[in-house]
Design a protein around this nucleic acid. Structure first.
Length: 258
DNA sequence: ATGCCTATTATTAATAGA
């Protein structure tokens, strides 16, 4: 079973690229972030014609998340991160697919830090930690996949000194990630590639992709029973090199059958 | 320290991203 996460940076603006990648990579499950489309503008028909069932949470202008699954419809279990009824950002959706619970997340960016946006990011992660623990407590097979907007360690940043005070790399957010892993989740890419520089994002400025000036922001965290089944974890970085690409690359794992 | 680029939304500029 191949499970991917992809911050598509506009699901309609980059629909052709998404469809090409789906045909090419043939993932069984895909978590999409930054749809940048309201609920009614999600390209449901094109996704269906590509062979995928889908659920999504859209929002005008920003955010937006979706879960696609090949040949079947995802069975939605949640479409909000619990803990704050006033948080209206479309940043979380959750579904059961083929016996695995899939959580698709798009964590807040948090810049500029310090400030209200950074406070929102920290509060969002507090809620996410509570919910992640609840998911672990069910002992179900769970994958937390998405754009975490956190580089967990220096190895995940092309030039760590430049990013120390950034909302994606400050100690507070790296500690949130550490606490998450400390609950018992497995960071799939880092576990299979402990020493390697792996990036999932290259910004549009300064020819970042050409210089390989990247960041590792997109993560798949696995509950213990899924971690035991982990076979591969990779980044489709060539997708970032395409014309009109998203600034993120698809990131995926393959797990053995249960 | 800032712009660099790209997208969306609303009307050629503002905002957000990371």
């Amino acid at each position: 079973m191949k499970i991917a996460t992809f911050n598509v940076n506009g699901v309609n603006g980059r629909l052709d690229l998404l469809l090409e990648w789906l045909a090419d990579a043939r993932p069984d499950v895909v978590c999409l972030q930054e749809l940048k489309a309201p609920q009614e503008k999600f390209p449901r028909k094109a996704i269906e014609q590509a062979g995928y069932g889908a659920i999504w949470s859209g929002q005008k202008s920003w955010n937006g998340v979706a879960i696609l699954s090949r040949g079947v419809d995802p069975v939605q279990t949640r479409r909000d991160l619990p803990g704050d009824p006033d948080d209206l950002h479309a940043r979380y959706i959750e579904a059961a697919v083929e016996g695995v619970l899939i959580a698709c997340l798009y964590a807040p960016n948090g810049n500029p830090a310090p400030g209200p946006k950074f406070e929102y990011k920290l509060a969002w992660y507090q809620r996410f930690l509570v919910h992640a623990q609840a998911l672990l407590d069910t002992q179900a097979p769970v994958v937390l996949a998405g754009d975490y907007n956190i580089m967990p360690t220096d190895l995940d940043v092309y030039k760590p000194e430049r990013w120390r005070d950034d909302a994606l790399f400050r100690p507070e957010v790296r500690e949130a990630f550490e606490r998450l892993v400390g609950q018992g989740w497995t960071d799939a890419l880092r576990t299979l590639h402990p020493e390697e520089r792996i990036y999932t994002f290259w910004d549009y400025f300064r020819n970042a992709y050409g210089r390989d000036a990247g960041l590792r922001l997109d993560h798949l965290l696995l509950s213990p029973s899924v971690a035991q089944r982990l076979k591969r974890a990779e980044v489709d970085r060539q997708v970032r090199g395409r014309d009109h690409a998203s600034d993120h690359a698809p990131t995926w794992i393959e797990i053995a059958d249960a």
